[in-house]
Nucleic acid binder design. Sequence first.
RNA 1: GGGCUCAUAGCUCAAGUGGCUAGAGCGCUGUCCUGAUAAGGCAGAGGUUCCUGGUUCAAGUCCAGGUGAGCCCA
Length: 934
Amino acid sequence: MDYSKTLNLPRTNFPMRARLPEKEPEILKFWQEERVYSKIRERKQGSPKFILHDGPPYANGDIHLGQVLNKILKDVIVKFKTMQGFDAPYVPGWDCHGLPVEHQLFKQLGINKSEIPQLEFRKKAREYAAHYVEKQKGQFKRLGVLGRWEKPYLTMDREYESEIVSAFGTLYRKGYIYKGFKPVHWCPQCQTALAEAEIEYKDKISHSIYVKFLLKNYPSPLKTSLPVYLVIWTTTPWTLPANRAVALHPKFSYVFVRFNQEVLLLAKETMGRVRKEVALQEGKTLAEFPGKDLEGLTYSQPITGEGLKTVMADFVTVEEGTGCVHIAPGHGEEDYFLGLKYHLPVVSPVNDEGRFLDSVHKFAGMSVFEANDPIIAWLKKRGWLLSSGKISHSYPHCWRCGGPLILRATPQWFLGVDKHNLRKKAMELVREKVGWIPSWSQSRMLGMLEKRPDWCLSRQRYWGVGIPVVYCTNPDCPRKGRVLQEEQVFESIASKVREKGSDVWFEEKVEALIPPGFSCPECGKKQFEKEEDIIDVWFESGISHRSVLAREESLRDPADMYIEGSDQHRGWFQTSLLTAVALGERPPFKKVFTHGFVVDAQGKKMSKSLGNVVDPAKIIDRWGAEILRLWVCLEDYTQDIRVSQEIIGQTIDIYRRIRNSYRFLLGNLHDFCFPENAVKSEEMREIDRCVLSQLQSLIKKVTAHYESFRFYEAFHLIHHFTSTRLSAFFFDVLKDRLYTFSRNSGERRSAQTALYHLLMTLIHLTAPVLSFTSEEVWLSIRKNNPELMSDHHISLRDSIFLSSWPEVDEDLIDEELEKKWEEILKVREEVLKVLEEKRQSKVVASSLEAKVVIEAPSHLLSLLASLGDELKEVLIVSQIELKEAEDLIVRVKKAEGGKCLRCWNYSPRVGENKKYPTLCERCWGVVDSLCVFS
RNA sequence: GGGCUCAUAGCUCAAGUGGCUAGAGCGCUGUCCUGAUAAGGCAGAGGUUCCUGGUUCAAGUCCAGGUGAGCCCA
């Protein structure tokens, strides 16, 4: 006779195999059709807000793992806060203007800037950006990220663009923005100035030359009839035409040394090294001076022959070069600032293409890189070249075209970081008003703020918002070229942009942009010209606190949290902070959360050249987005996080364990109604109560970890609980009771009550991360066993994200009980070890074939005895004999009697019952009762 | 070169203010079960806590210097 039909075996059609790549789109469809995000918004009206402000990714290309990491973290936080009861809207955004779109598009079109009118190009750029917004939107949604996808914010929206104009105007009027002439990183290929964020440093082979500058005078103690030269070292011979000074360190010691028929001046400490590098014999030191005594010496400019002076500078080093530094204020940042101090002219005789102007007679028209060799040749001819070689060093390159950059002084617009104490104020707020996670993120921000130069806001490009500045061009105006800074001018431009988009600046004549009839307040004329440069995209995204947070009704400025990769300390965190402080005297965020970068198995960054780039789409197609979500949340993302086949494999294993536990729970709850079949806590079996008590502390800890954004701690705990507490212990022990006891028995219902709470709690605790699976379980319950949710406060129609976060039920916590069971578990561990030995020696196979004899000290013995028959269930053995002894000793024997064909337990009484000769005493009762009812 | 940061079993993570024989889980190996079954149970083997010094009765933990890695800057 087959008794398996008389058992209560698990029943569910929740599949063991997830088939996530197929299942996930169904869940996404459900969220879409049920308008889950909108419903959440409706229901949370009036709840306390939690605003996580999305940093806009760049609308170009497919999403990479870094963006996956970022968006998933944001989604987990938003979902957690939502389930906790907050109104936590998520409005995603995109950064749409700027060089990367331009470059890609020019590449795609196969033309350059000069071959297409700006307006025509801008139209295509807009389409291009819009295309990638849609593409990335689909990819982000595929990750399971809930948000206001149907109305994201775009930096190329007219309203947004208008805010950019008005923010610029306000900052200009407040005196933060100025026009300067300053060396900036310039890409001769792209013909544009580059922001710091657009520069990549990589190795480049450069010239390395030592050059003699003839000194026209020198300190009197030195007496010689030989020519005296100071020696400089440079890797950019082409900057020599722009040389305006030579800097020495005031504290270094300098020597005049005679080599053959000439005398050279250089820092004493550099002597040995320089002599080796330029292959000079040992010379004779004629005199030695501290640097400060050598200020104001006159030398002959090597290219122009002008008489120029030596100056003092602290940044001079002896690590490289000669301690005498060639200064070209038009071609170097430090040089520029030193130039300000000494009133040196900013000379930069190079045009947009990086070619020398006519003023550089000898080399006019040459590109600066081509000019290096002729310059060196020229120096050599004059006898001023001491040595010439090559050096490989880190050099700035254009992030888009990859070409080497030059520093070139051009008229640019700047945001003055020290205007109105902006830097100081920002740093103070960073220190006092913003929470930084992890904490070191604060010192990083401070360090960067402290040292950052003024922010170059202008770009000589096509795709962006025009700098909204109008000049008076009347040649007779007392201040020709002055900017119209009247508020109504900026307002007029902003409103035009709001009406027609930023193209209006390039389409319309200047008169149509300023207020009708407006005339120059200075000269009364109406001759105007508009600025041609466009605004740095970092400024655009940097004001999102104003254009998005402050303007969107559902949002709020400041945001509760910004969360981005650690590179954004220099990027968005900083540009947002600076603009917010300048505009409104406060930071745009209460908390800043930083995550690391995704690196490969060895911890190396991903790059095309290393060939170690992992494409998220491949993982999604093969394993599902859920695996990516879990992966993110198993790692400590305050550091860089690794990805590899092995790590993904491990994530899949962990996923399977959790999923199977859900399946087991569902299967064993198929005939359980809540609350009808639920057993009151005080009537439950001890072990069931014990697990529920442990579940409460799991809720506590997991919630705390979510609250401190340490999802990996939460998930390691959940996984640990699921594997060890549930799968390896509770579920295993419970099987006998669930399967063999009569369906409606108190014992079985007690177990199910525990299982019910476990299932409901766990799917909620995992929902922010395992969103697809938790929702799938939720949907499965509603479809297959709605009776499980007859609990009135759970609405069947809703997504799991409309239900709330599990609360700790203090009544279920029983620490005494947990302690007691810890003792029992220790005994169980001992029993399992002995069982394993007996299994190895083939005495028993299944543990149910065993009878266990436990000798234990009296207190432990009484503890075990108190469990009665439950003890053998806990140990999953057929018989138990308890004896008193000094120490714990466990022995295992073959169980007595025969095997019950129904429950597989052994009992001496099997065979006693004539009606059921193959069943044990417990089962024949159960089977009998079944027959009575059937 | 400078700023910030990281380094603990094959992998992912633990080890308040220095006090353990450095812990989990996964994976691995062996094994049992076949009523969670492309599941589940049990047992076992895995660590010079990156290296070198130092402080201390005591260092994975503190200090200094290396090495490797990441972000940012020059």
